[in-house]
């Protein structure tokens, strides 16, 4: 936990605090062979590195074939966050998982393009649902043998 920084967007109220410290504030949820996670506005260097590490560990550990990163809460994507997303995508692909980044806000998309960043190699989807659909999640008979450890909200 990086102190007060992760507080604003962290899952609040109903869900109990995560048992394991969550570096980037968003838990990684497993649905079948797909991992679902997100990014928060307050992403700093340390938590970005920690998050990348955790996600890659989980891809290998859970034998995930797909990763959905929900970024609908991101109000700003600067080159640092963009690079983090691109690196995550590349690493996941090397580990055999397909990454889809879902839910980019219109203003963020315009700004990112004007900034000159195309998120090369990153697949995008309109929202988490569309992303999961693309990852073939609806074909799974049931989420998984094991109950999800965390919920997104």
């Amino acid at each position: 936990m990086n102190g007060p920084l992760s507080a604003p967007g962290a899952p609040a109220g109903s869900s109990p605090p995560p048992p394991v410290p969550q570096p980037a504030g968003v838990p990684i949820l497993r649905l079948g062979d797909v991992l679902v996670t997100g990014l928060l506005n307050e992403l700093d260097d340390k938590s970005a590195v920690a998050f990348t590490e955790e996600l890659t560990t989980r891809i290998v550990g859970d034998a995930a074939r797909g990763v959905l990163i929900d970024i609908s809460r991101l109000e700003v994507i600067d080159s640092f966050v963009a690079r983090t997303l691109m690196e995550l995508t590349t690493m996941a692909r090397l580990l055999g998982a397909r990454v889809i980044v879902a839910g980019m806000r219109p203003a963020v998309a315009i700004t990112l393009v004007e900034l000159g960043l195309q998120l090369t190699g990153v697949e995008t989807a309109l929202n988490a649902e569309a992303g999961l659909l693309a990852l073939g999640w609806q074909q799974m008979p049931r989420p998984s043998g094991e109950a999800p450890r965390d919920s997104l909200r």
């Binding site: 109000e75 315009i110 004007e114």
Partner: peptide, 13 residues
Amino acid sequence: LVDQTRIVTAASE
């Protein structure tokens, strides 16, 4: 909103 995002992003960079 779009201009806000542009300026905050530039500031962040």
